[in-house]
C-alpha cells in the first residue's frame, strides 16, 4: 500500500506532474519577463503563463469539421503524459524516482514523442496551415536529431571508456566521482552543440519556423482552442524544463548537497539561467530562420561541433 502511494506521489507530485508543470510554467514566465525587459517594455508578470493556462482550460473547445476527432483531442494528452514519464527517469543530481536502466537512447526516443504528438495533432486538424507547419516541424526534427545523437554518443564514450554505458544513472554517478563533464575540454563542443539544440527542440525563436505566427498562423496549433490548446502550451513549457534539466544532468552533474529539496532548488536555478541563456537571448537578438537555412545550420555548424567532440573523445584526447 505504501509502495503504491509512493509511486503515485512520484508520478503526480514530485518529480512528476505537479512539479514539472509548475516549474515549466515558471520558466516560461521568466522567459517572457526577461525578453520584455530586453525589449525595453514592462512585460507580463512572471505568473502570467499560469493565468493563461487556467484561462484556456475554461474556454470552449471547437473541433473543426475536417478534423479526426479522436486524434485531435488525444494528441496533446499523450504528449503531456510522455513528457511526465520522461521526467521521472531523468535523475536530479543523483536522485531519480524510478531507476531501471533508462538509457540515453530511450530518452532520445521519448523526446520525439511530444514532437510527433504535435505533428499528428496538427495534421489531424485538417487545415492547410497545419500541413505546412507539420512539414516544417518534421524537417526541424530531422535537423536537430543528427547533432543530438553525436553529442550523446560522445558523452557515453567519455563516461563508459572501454565498456558501453548509456544509462543516465551511471552518468550521474560518474560525475559525482570524477567532476562534471563540462570540465573535460574535449566535451565543450558537444555541450555547445547541445545548447544550440535546446531552442530548436523547444520551438522558440529563432528556430520556431514551424509555428511562425506571422506566416502560417501558428502552424499545427491553428485549429486548436480551449483545453487541448492549453495542454499544448503546457507541453512547450515543460519541454523547456526537461531540455535544460537534461543539459544539467549530462554536463553539469557533479553537485550533491545530500538533501533532495536543496538539490531540486539548485537544479531549478540552473534551469532558469540556462533558459535565459539559450532561449531568451537568441529570441531577443536574432530573427527567425527560414527552414532550409535552419536545416543547413544544424547539419553543418552544430553537427560539426558535435562531430569535433566525438573525434576528440574517440581518439583519446
Amino acid at each position: 500500500m505504501y509502495d503504491i502511494l509512493m509511486i503515485l506521489f512520484h508520478v503526480l507530485v514530485f518529480p512528476g506532474l505537479l512539479f514539472v508543470c509548475v516549474i515549466g510554467l515558471l520558466l516560461a514566465g521568466i522567459d517572457r519577463k526577461v525578453l520584455a525587459r530586453m525589449q525595453k517594455r514592462v512585460g507580463p508578470p512572471i505568473v502570467q503563463p499560469w493565468y493563461d493556462f487556467l484561462k484556456l482550460m475554461g474556454k470552449e473547445t471547437i473541433v473543426p469539421s475536417n478534423a479526426n476527432r479522436a486524434v485531435f483531442l488525444g494528441a496533446p494528452v499523450v504528449g503531456l503524459s510522455s513528457l511526465i514519464v520522461m521526467m521521472l527517469f531523468i535523475p536530479i543530481f543523483g536522485y531519480s524516482a524510478f531507476s531501471g536502466s533508462a538509457d540515453l537512447i530511450v530518452i532520445l526516443y521519448l523526446l520525439t514523442i511530444p514532437a510527433v504528438c504535435l505533428i499528428v495533432g496538427g495534421s489531424s486538424s485538417g487545415s492547410p496551415y497545419a500541413g505546412i507547419g507539420i512539414s516544417r516541424e518534421m524537417v526541424t526534427m530531422m535537423a536537430y536529431e543528427f547533432p543530438l545523437i553525436i553529442a550523446l554518443l560522445s558523452v557515453a564514450k567519455v563516461v563508459g571508456g572501454e565498456t558501453l554505458v548509456f544509462s543516465m544513472r551511471s552518468i550521474a554517478n560518474w560525475q559525482l566521482s570524477n567532476g562534471c563533464l563540462i570540465a573535460h575540454w574535449a566535451l565543450i563542443p558537444a555541450a555547445l552543440a547541445f545548447l544550440l539544440i535546446i531552442p530548436a527542440e523547444v520551438g522558440t525563436q529563432p528556430f520556431d519556423v514551424a509555428e511562425a505566427e506571422t506566416e502560417i498562423c501558428e502552424g499545427p496549433l491553428v485549429e486548436y482552442s480551449g483545453a487541448p490548446l492549453g495542454v499544448f502550451k503546457l507541453n512547450t513549457a515543460i519541454k523547456m524544463f526537461i531540455m535544460t534539466g537534461l543539459f544539467t544532468t549530462l554536463f553539469l552533474g557533479g553537485i550533491d548537497t545530500g538533501m533532495v529539496w536543496l538539490n531540486a532548488i539548485i537544479y531549478v536555478a540552473i534551469s532558469i539561467v540556462l533558459t535565459v541563456l539559450t532561449m531568451t537571448i537568441p529570441h531577443a537578438i536574432c530573427a527567425r530562420l527560414k527552414i532550409e537555412k535552419l536545416f543547413k545550420f544544424y547539419w553543418t555548424i552544430v553537427a560539426g561541433l558535435a562531430l569535433l567532440s566525438l573525434i576528440l573523445v574517440w581518439f583519446g584526447l
Partner: peptide, 16 residues
Amino acid sequence: LASFIKVTQACFFGQC
C-alpha cells in the same frame, strides 16, 4: 518517421 508523417498528412488527414 518523416516519410510516414508525409504519408499520414497526404493520405489520411487533411481535406478529402
